[in-house]
Design a binder for these strands. Structure first.
Lengths: 224, 224
DNA sequence: GGGCAGCTCCCCCGCGCGGGGGAACCCGCT
DNA sequence: AGCGGGTTCCCCCGCGCGGGGGAGCTGCCC
């Protein structure tokens, strides 16, 4: 999960697909197969088949769904990395603030894509990770993920569990509908400081603005 | 919803695809296009385009996603039926116990398929409805149809009950963390219009900004 | 002692948001 | 015919927000 050093040079990029939905697999295969520089070398419908698949087909990039019955994409990614595979893993997820995104990155994924992406975005993502680059929204996520491995969060959403005490306080106040100035007053801080904390919350949760962060806070049960 | 009488005889079955996710559309197109007796004659990414699409391409079968931003598959199906279209509608849904399934069938759909179906099942479904038969998976569909009568309107907070239908839609999308531009895209509106609706929501709920409105929406149970 | 993470505060900058107006259209009701 | 509510789109304007930097301090761990 270092994100550099194992880039794929020129030539055809070998791609393996792992998704439990055959329709998605077909779609990806059709989109990828139509590109001259990309080639689908294998498919699997379950995480348990991944190791075998990669061993047989030696793909440069594995497109991996996070949510799968049985062995999910995270466990499969972890297994791949542990086995010392050179394959780069691009994780497919439904939501940007999916609970599993951080875990996936921690497991060694090189990037993630939304399932609602356009075919063009998917192709770009594949080429990006094939070059050895990472495909992430915030860089902070990677740092976050690295730290996440060694301390098993007791409860809640992983991203939210990684918030510091202060950031958690700020998020709770955000989830109460307060502005930065009001939060600053409540915590006896400068507005600038609150801004920093808010920025950290957004980065760590992968959300774009305070509203999305608040939505995540409610949906995850972080606040009620 | 009758399920008989308008069957398609022999020859190539013309299929139209309606789904907001390009990846799914590509997948379906690839799967269907590979069959000698089936042909994809058109695609749309939004329910609002359906009437026009069907008018232009005269498909025998419309593969329709239920959940779409803006005009959803149910409304689109209803519009098709109301317009007296001969096209048969096969609804695509993610979950078998989706509340929308019953509504979709009531709207005039001829059957539904799970998105996690195999390509073979999809092809079989298309051919089945093209013959004029209905495709109702034996599962829990009948049960759902019976206990369909769900009362319990939102109504919880008086301010929220005073919202118009449109304003309610906008608030729900706000509570999904979407920006004005994204809401506009989802509802196929101008950003200016969304701004008007958001302003109305804020005024009626007595909230200051979108975050407070979203907080109210969650705490009141307007959204979950 | 150095390194690192967390907390605090500061700068500039672009932009989305919200407030203040207005106007057109359709619909249903009177 | 007149009216009001709902929906749609438009203008200008101020400001809070978020992104990009940086910096000094504490406390902890190696």
């Amino acid at each position: 999960m270092t994100g550099q050093g194992t880039g794929h040079g020129t030539g055809t990029v070998r791609v393996a697909l792992v998704d439990d939905e055959p329709l998605i697999r077909s779609g990806l295969a059709a989109v990828i197969g139509a590109e001259p520089d990309l080639e689908v070398v294998g498919q699997a419908g379950d995480g348990s088949e991944v190791l075998d698949l990669v061993g047989r087909t030696a793909p440069h990039v594995v497109l991996m769904d996070v949510r799968m019955p049985g062995v999910d994409g995270i466990a499969a990614t972890r297994a791949l990395v542990r086995a010392g595979s050179a394959a780069r893993v691009l994780v497919l997820t439904t939501f940007a603030n999916d609970d599993h995104v951080v875990d996936a990155l921690a497991a060694g994924a090189d990037g993630f894509l939304l399932k609602r992406s356009t075919p063009e975005e998917v192709l770009h993502g594949i080429r990006t990770v094939a070059r050895g680059e990472s495909l992430l929204f915030p860089d902070a996520v990677r740092e976050l993920a690295r730290r996440h491995v060694r301390s098993a969060g007791p409860a809640g959403v992983p991203e939210l569990a990684r918030l510091t005490a202060r950031e958690g306080e700020v998020l709770r106040l955000m989830a109460d509908g307060r502005s930065n100035a009001e939060i600053a007053a409540a915590l006896v801080l400068g507005v600038e400081t609150v801004r920093s904390h808010v920025a950290a919350v957004l980065a760590k949760t992968g959300t774009r603005d305070r509203t999305q962060a608040v939505v995540l806070a409610y949906r995850s049960g972080f606040v009620r």
